[in-house]
């Protein structure tokens, strides 16, 4: 890859944290089930939220434990312009479940744990199965990213999807304010 192309690509890395935030939005508003070329995938944001502004030197916030996606702090961070920069997710396909973290700068998968359905038959090669499960998740996340990119690069991105995301944040903010008034 030429240096100019590389600089261009690196400067578009902000798309990764937009992707994570969009994923969170879709999980909460549409249930988090996606039809992908490799098959259906259900996904949910679980824990260990890190939110940050697009500017590397900007504000960062972390929330973990006790359903952090529902916390008023999360709604306020989004409303203040922070995007999801890292989180722990749970994903499921068929009987298989993955627990994993996704990084909003590199989209690297970290701390991937695979939970397979209870099965009396021992796998022929458990290492091979584990690596294949990791690779399957990687490919599914890449496909999800492509779904996001399709919307992100569409002419209607700002008019439709961004407005929907803003509506979601606004709704979370109202719920947070209600929750805080009840305290």
């Amino acid at each position: 890859m030429a240096l100019d192309d590389l600089a261009f690509a690196i400067e578009r890395s902000f798309l990764a944290s937009e992707f994570l935030t969009w994923l969170w939005f879709r999980c909460e508003t549409e249930g988090g089930t996606f039809d992908l070329p490799s098959g259906g995938l259900s996904i949910a944001v679980e824990d260990a939220l890190q939110l940050a502004s697009w500017d590397e030197d900007g504000v960062k916030a972390s929330l973990r434990g006790g359903a952090p996606t529902k916390r008023p702090e999360a709604a306020h961070a989004l409303a203040a312009g922070l995007l999801l920069s890292k989180a722990r997710f749970v994903g499921a396909r068929g009987g298989r479940e993955w627990l994993f973290a996704l990084d909003g700068q590199t989209l690297d998968l970290t701390s991937v744990k695979v939970v397979d359905p209870e099965d009396d038959d021992e796998p022929e090669d458990s290492l091979c199965d584990k690596l294949a499960a990791g690779e399957e998740l990687r490919l599914a996340i890449d496909e999800l990213y492509d779904v996001f990119l399709g919307l992100r690069l569409d002419d209607d991105w700002n008019a439709i999807e961004v407005e929907r995301i803003r509506g979601w944040v606004s709704s979370k903010l109202k719920q947070a304010q209600t929750a805080l008034q009840l305290v």
Binding site: F8, A9, I10, R12, S13, Q105, T106, Y145, L149, L153
Partner: peptide, 9 residues
Amino acid sequence: MPGVRAAAF
């Protein structure tokens, strides 16, 4: 990387 993948897409 996300930017590289976005450029390819």
